[in-house]
Structures are given as C-alpha cells and as structure tokens.
Design a binder for these strands. Sequence first.
DNA 1: AATTAACTTTGAAATCACTACAAAAAAAAG
DNA 2: CTTTTTTTTGTAGTGATTTCAAAGTTAATT
Lengths: 141, 141
Amino acid sequence: MKKTVRSEIDGIPERLRSFGVRPLTHRVDVYRYLIEQNNHPTADMIHNDLVKILPSLSKTTVYNVLNHLCEKGAVHRVNVEQHEARYDAMIHDHVHFKCRLCGKVYDLDEIPFPTIDPPTDYSIEIVQVIIGGICPDCQTG
Amino acid sequence: MKKTVRSEIDGIPERLRSFGVRPLTHRVDVYRYLIEQNNHPTADMIHNDLVKILPSLSKTTVYNVLNHLCEKGAVHRVNVEQHEARYDAMIHDHVHFKCRLCGKVYDLDEIPFPTIDPPTDYSIEIVQVIIGGICPDCQTG
DNA sequence: AATTAACTTTGAAATCACTACAAAAAAAAG
DNA sequence: CTTTTTTTTGTAGTGATTTCAAAGTTAATT
Ligand SMILES: [Mn+2]
Ligand SMILES: [Mn+2]
Ligand SMILES: [Zn+2]
Ligand SMILES: [Zn+2]
C-alpha cells in the first residue's frame, strides 16, 4: 500500500495551480493553514503556528509566500487594523466583523454583501466592508 | 477695533468641545487642517504641512492629538492600506475610494452608504466601506 | 498672586511589522 | 549530470507608531 501524503488528498496543490501559483511546499503549508484555520491571521500568527511543525520555516518566507499568494489572487489581504495585515483564503465577497474586545475577525457569511455602484468614471477592483463592534462572545448580559 | 484670531471666527474650538475635547492650540490646528484639506492625510503629511507654520510642532504631538481626537470620536481613522493610517474629520457615513495608481483617497459622497444588518447578537459601532480601483484622473483612454 | 496639581508637549530611544539583500538551497531545464 | 532559474533563509535596514521622562502649560486651590 502506497504511502499517501496530505497534499495528495486535500487538493491544495491543484487549487494553487488554478491561481497560477506553483505549489511549493511552504506555499502549500501556508495556504492550507489559511483554509483550515479560517482565522484571518497575521503573518506573525501564521509563522508562530507553522514553525512548531516546520522548525526551519523563516518569517521572511511567510511574508514572501503571502505576498505571492496575494499577487496571484489566491489570498486576500484584509486591512482591518492599522499596522497589522490579516490574510484570508476565502476570496468570495463577504462582510468582515472585528471585535473591539477580543480582537477576533469574523466572516459574516450569513448577511448579503452590499452592492456598491460608484460613479462610472471610477473603476472598481475590490470592495472591502468591515464592521467594528462587539462580538456575541464578548457581550455582557 | 479688537483683533480677531482665527479660532474665534471658524468655530473649531466649539466643535471640539462638543466632542468632549479641550480645544488646546495644537488640537485646534490639527482638527482645522483635517477639515480644511479634507484630504485623508497620514500623520506624516499633517506634520509636514503644519510644521511649516508651527516650526516647534513635534511629530509625537501630531500622533498624540490624532489619537485623542479618534478616542473622542471627533475624527475617524481610515485603514485604507497597511502601515499607513489616514485620518478623516468627516465623520458621517460615506464610502471611500482609494486609487491604486495615484494613491488618493476620495469620498464618494454621491453614492448611498449601504445598509448592513449583522446578526442581532453582534453590536455594530462602525462600518467602513473601502473601494480599491482606479480613479477618474488615472484612467487611460 | 503664589502654590500646587493635572495635563500637554517634546525629542530621543524603543518597538514592531515589514522589506531588501545576498548567500545557500532547491527545483527546473537542458 | 550540469547549468539556469527560483526559492529559502538570516541579517540588517526601513518607516510608522509608541514609550518614556523631562520640560512646559493650563487649571484649580490657597
Ligand atoms: Mn474572511
Ligand atoms: Mn472621507
Ligand atoms: Zn469578541
Ligand atoms: Zn488616481
């Protein structure tokens, strides 16, 4: 019985290839992490978690990989807060909610994404909708 | 004839007081700058411009003032791009448009601000809508 | 008005996220 | 296998923002 590696069963390399990204191991690792956690992590959070299983992974590589995935459109950068970029492998339009107390960033997939029609002489490339407030877990009473 | 200083005629101190901000001179200067320019400037741009007329103004003070104005709600911080916070004294709901080519941030006051209804267990404090794309001035052809 | 307390300003140093760079390693091409 | 191209890594650098403590202002109290 042939040994099966994880990337053969989860289809991550193929998803990356569909974005024109060569599925190198660290790219697969970071992309799988983003998909599995769906956490909107910072580069630092990704590195902290992955370095536990990949001790040689450098932070520079995490930045390189994230920049490459963003350029190719496989991942979106979410500017939810000044001085810390967050990353999201869910690239369909959806509203984000950032809790002021616990800091978590939620996907509000359950509500519709608004239609924005700017004047015709502006050309849209991307629309970000970010709500700030207090999440269900942090409500008092 | 009594000499009239600018702050007596433009009502800036009163506007600041209405937000619970004591109208110290630098606060008035920064706030008036934001209102007059309506430019969504960075802290650095504000300092660069104001230091020409107020040579002793330190960058730290600009940061202090901006943080205070944001805390008191007199000014909004717009996270339009990673590692550069921009500031806005127009605090009514409006859509922002950032041009990828010239970097300018426009107010799209002419289009309606979308209604966002998150699940009731989330409490909203602020909604930001940021469009990325190319502005009229930067369109080719 | 003088004294005291509270707040603000300042510049230097520190922090923190991110980038630049160049050498080493790995992958692809021939 | 050899050469070329791409990727990874650690170190050093950058730039925006914060921290800190001293000096300066403003407000409150005698
Ligand atoms: Mn998301
Ligand atoms: Mn605005
Ligand atoms: Zn929360
Ligand atoms: Zn433009």
